[in-house]
Each structure stands twice: as structure tokens, then as C-alpha cells.
């Protein structure tokens, strides 16, 4: 075997252009990390102090103030669940028509299609905490602001996934109904709805699960729920009560996840 064939047999996994792009990405990541480490404000004393402070915090959290649960936590916890659930329901009502309009195979025209997509994107780009701040400014502190915050943040999520489910629906079935001269609404309810139903319920459950987690934090900006209880306990430095609230949140979130997984298994 001569040198020429040897050289020809050297194997490159990627073309030079591909390698260049990948190298650029790696370089950017490394540069970003280095620059961030150098500029971000880190106070060394605080950092050295951290393990001790953390240990101190945990010591104050123990024993957990279980006695605080009936009068200080339970009601707030239930309120959180209601915020998450009602918020999800409202978001579904708003998201369904927008999601349909965002699906290019049934949107009556392109303008409406794009408008719907824009609505969904803006809903998703605003954090639920920001939505909560806005609604607290409008409706005053309390669960109403929290519920609407959850609803408005979820519209983008639910609407996007509903739209995608509609776009994936089998064309043939729908064509058959159109061929029978069925009106638009009936095509929707007989052709599309049965097809998207499983993914619809799974999306709603999934979002509810996320919303339980998110609604726990809304109280920090005054939008109701268990976050209020957390905020109060924290401001009074009652760390054993803080631990109680955290434990309550943890339990509910895990329970919600188990419930959702169980229901999804039965539906799908």
C-alpha cells in the first residue's frame, strides 16, 4: 500500500465547515463561562461562610413545627391547589380556540394563524411570577391575581400543544367527513376531536402538574397560596415553620406527580 492511498484513507467524521461551526460553538461556551466567572459578583467571605451558615439554617429548621400545620399552612395549601386547578381550567378555555387557530391545517386564513401564534408565544415568554406581579397591580393581592397568572402563563403551553396535536391529525378521516358535506363544526367535533383527545388530556394533566409547582411560589409577590405562608414565616425568622411549609409543598408536588402519572397511564 503506497502513501497516496494511505492518505486517502484518513477519515474525517465531519466536513471542514461542520467542524468549524462546532468549534465556534464550543469556543463560545468556554468564553462565556470564563467571562461570567470573572465578572459575576461573588463575595469570597460569604462563600467561605456558606457551609457554616447552611448548617446553622438546617439546625434552626429542626424540629419541624408540625403543630403549625392546622392553623397556618393547611388553608394556604388548599388555596394553592385551587389556584393551580382553576388556573388550568381557565387556560384551557382560552387556549383551545387559539390553539385551533394556530394549527395551519384548519386556520381559515394565514393572518389569523400568525396572530394566534404570536399570542401563544407572548403568553409563554412572560414568567408566571411576572404575570402575578401584573395581576396583583391590577386586581390587588390575593388568589384572583394568582389564578389569572397561572391561567395566562399556561395558555401558551396548552395552546401550542393543542395546535400541534391538530396538525398531526390524520387527514384521511377528516377528508371523509368533508366529502359527506358535514359543516365545519361537525368536522371538528367528529373528525379532529376524537383524534386529539388523548394528547389533549395528557397536555392538560401535564400542565396542571407544573402549575401546582408554580402556584406555590406566587404568594411571594402577594398572589395568594402557600407562598404567602412561606413569606410570613421567613420574615419572622421562624425557621421551623419554614421547614413545615417546605415539607408541605414537597408532599403536594410529589403527590400531584404520582396522580398525574397514574391517570396518564390509564388514558393512553
Amino acid at each position: 500500500m503506497n502513501d497516496a492511498t494511505l492518505e486517502a484513507r484518513i477519515w474525517h467524521r465531519f466536513t471542514p465547515a461542520q467542524r468549524l461551526v462546532r468549534f465556534a460553538v464550543y469556543l463560545t461556551v468556554v468564553t462565556a463561562v470564563v467571562v461570567s466567572i470573572q465578572t459575576v459578583e461573588v463575595i469570597p467571605e460569604f462563600l467561605l461562610d456558606a457551609p457554616e451558615q447552611m448548617a446553622d439554617l438546617l439546625r434552626r429548621m429542626w424540629p419541624i413545627a408540625f403543630s403549625h400545620y392546622p392553623k397556618g399552612v393547611h388553608e394556604a395549601l388548599v388555596e394553592t391547589l385551587h389556584i393551580a386547578t382553576l388556573g388550568t381550567i381557565i387556560s384551557v378555555v382560552i387556549a383551545f380556540p387559539i390553539g385551533l387557530a394556530a394549527a395551519h391545517n384548519i386556520a381559515p386564513n394565514r393572518l389569523l394563524n400568525h396572530a394566534a401564534r404570536l399570542l401563544l408565544v407572548s403568553s409563554r415568554s412572560v414568567n408566571s411570577l411576572v404575570w402575578a406581579l401584573l395581576f396583583v397591580a391590577v386586581f390587588g393581592p390575593g388568589a384572583l391575581a394568582g389564578t389569572l397568572a397561572i391561567a395566562f402563563r399556561s395558555v401558551g403551553f396548552v395552546g401550542k400543544l393543542v395546535g400541534e396535536a391538530v396538525e398531526e391529525a390524520n387527514r384521511g378521516t377528516v377528508e371523509a367527513l368533508e366529502a359527506s358535506g358535514a359543516p365545519w363544526l361537525s368536522v371538528l367535533s367528529f373528525g379532529y376531536w376524537p383524534q386529539i383527545q388523548p394528547s389533549f388530556w395528557s397536555v392538560v394533566l401535564f400542565r396542571w402538574d407544573i402549575n401546582v409547582r408554580e402556584s406555590a411560589v406566587l404568594g411571594l409577590v402577594g398572589a395568594g397560596g402557600i407562598g404567602m405562608a412561606l413569606d410570613t414565616a421567613m420574615n419572622l425568622f421562624q425557621w421551623d415553620r419554614v421547614a413545615m411549609v417546605l415539607l408541605a409543598i414537597f408532599t403536594v408536588v410529589i403527590a400531584a406527580e404520582i396522580v398525574v402519572t397514574a391517570i396518564r397511564k390509564r388514558i393512553l
Binding site: 390524520n170 384521511g172 378521516t173 371523509a176 366529502a179 376524537p194 383524534q195 383527545q197
Partner: peptide
């Protein structure tokens, strides 16, 4: 006008 399709095109669910 009734129509019958190759892939049946029923609403499966």
C-alpha cells in the same frame, strides 16, 4: 355524493 376511501378513513376512536 357518498364516498368510500382506500384507507377507509374512519374516525378510529
Amino acid at each position: 355524493i357518498g364516498m368510500v376511501f382506500q384507507e377507509y378513513n374512519l374516525v378510529e376512536r
